[in-house]
Amino acid sequence: MPHHPVSFALHGGAGDMPQRDHGYAEHLAALQAIGTQVQSALQDGLPALDAVEMGVRLLEDCEHFNAGRGAVLNTLGEAELDASIMGGDGACGAVAATRRPRNPVTLARALLNDGRHVMLAGAHADAACERLGISMAEPEYFIIEDRQRQLERARAHATVMLDHDEPLGTVGAVARDRHGRLAAATSTGGMTNKAAGRVGDTGVIGAGTWANDQTCAISTTGHGESFIRVNAAAQIHWRMSLGHEPMHAAAELVIQQVVDCGGMGGLIGVDRDGLVCLPMSTLGMFRAWSELDAPVRSAVFR
Rank of each mutant, 00 (worst) to 15 (best):
N193M: 02
R181K: 11
L151N: 07
I236G: 01
Y141P: 01
E225D: 10
A137T: 03
F142E: 00
E145I: 00
S187K: 07
T202G: 13
A207N: 13
A249P: 09
T221K: 10
V105R: 02
E225Y: 04
E166Y: 15
R176W: 12
L182Q: 06
I205N: 06
V160K: 07
L112R: 11
A123C: 02
R149A: 01
I205M: 03
G200R: 03
N193R: 05
F142D: 00
V118N: 12
R229V: 00
Q214N: 08
G180D: 09
L120H: 06
R239N: 09
G122D: 06
T221P: 13
T209G: 04
E140C: 01
R176Q: 14
D165T: 12
M161A: 14
H117R: 11
A173M: 11
S135P: 02
A249D: 15
A175Q: 13
L120D: 06
R116W: 09
Q214S: 06
I218W: 08
L111S: 03
G208T: 04
A232Y: 14
R147G: 00
T188C: 05
A158N: 15
G203H: 12
A108F: 14
G197P: 08
L111N: 04
Q148W: 14
G115E: 06
V105T: 04
R176L: 12
G197Y: 08
N113T: 14
T209V: 11
R181S: 11
V118C: 10
V230H: 07
